[in-house]
């Protein structure tokens, strides 16, 4: 087996160069659904971080025992267990938030980021690398989520984390907190990221 990237490389790659949302277009469902307020986006990112970290570590620990055809089943079992734990925890200690996030917490189970990281990294590399990879990817996910949520919340309600930042005369762009705003904001931000990436690679050459 070829030697994979080191923990540090994995960690750094997850944040920007291989950002799960902007670069790999994974995990779009929560990216669009829960980004109408910063609080919801951060809670979501936290839940994903918990699930991804635990799943990556456990898969990495048992990676030498897994047969190919059982791999996906075990991934799913592990992920579903940790998602249930995260869901119950939110319902017990952050009840209003868990009501706001609704079905999107259980939908983490089918979030391609997690199963993808288990497959690409955790089932091949050591525990430390897998853990670093999980944290890097989750930070990348959190950054992507909060960038979208910041634009949507500020333009849509004139507030940031529930605190008013724009003058009261600001006419709230209600469309930004509604579903179409999610598609438009993410589409334009994705375009901006692509544009920036292109320019950087051109000047680099």
């Amino acid at each position: 087996m070829a030697k994979g990237p080191t923990p540090l490389e994995r960690f750094i790659q997850g944040i920007l160069p291989e950002n799960p949302v902007y670069r790999q277009l994974l995990g779009l469902c929560p990216t669009l659904a829960v980004t109408n307020s910063m609080k919801a986006a951060i809670t979501m990112a936290g839940a994903v971080m918990f699930v991804l970290f635990c799943a990556n570590v456990i898969i990495s620990l048992i990676r030498n025992l897994l047969k190919p055809h059982l791999r996906i089943v075990i991934f799913t079992l592990t992920i579903a267990t940790f998602v249930t734990i995260a869901d119950k925890f939110l319902a017990a200690y952050m009840y209003q938030m868990s009501k706001t996030l609704g079905p999107y917490i259980p939908l983490i189970i089918v979030n391609c980021i997690i199963i993808g990281r288990c497959e690409i990294c955790a089932s091949r590399q050591s525990v430390i690398t897998a853990g670093a990879d999980a944290i890097g990817q989750s930070i990348g996910f959190a950054l992507a989520l909060s960038s979208i949520a910041a634009v949507r919340e500020i333009l849509g309600t004139g507030m940031f984390f529930g605190l008013r930042v724009l003058p009261a005369a600001w006419p709230d762009w209600v469309i930004m907190v509604l579903p179409p705003g999610a598609f438009l904001t993410f589409g334009l931000l994705l375009g901006a990221v692509n544009w920036y990436g292109d320019r950087k690679s051109k000047t680099g050459n």
Partner: peptide, 23 residues
């Protein structure tokens, strides 16, 4: 389509307009 928007980005923007319709 402007180059940076090609692919997923323009699809998302079109989806946004469709979503307005469905609203």
């Amino acid at each position: 389509v402007p180059k940076p928007l090609r692919g997923a980005a323009i699809t998302l923007i079109v989806a946004g307009i469709l979503a307005m319709g469905f609203m």
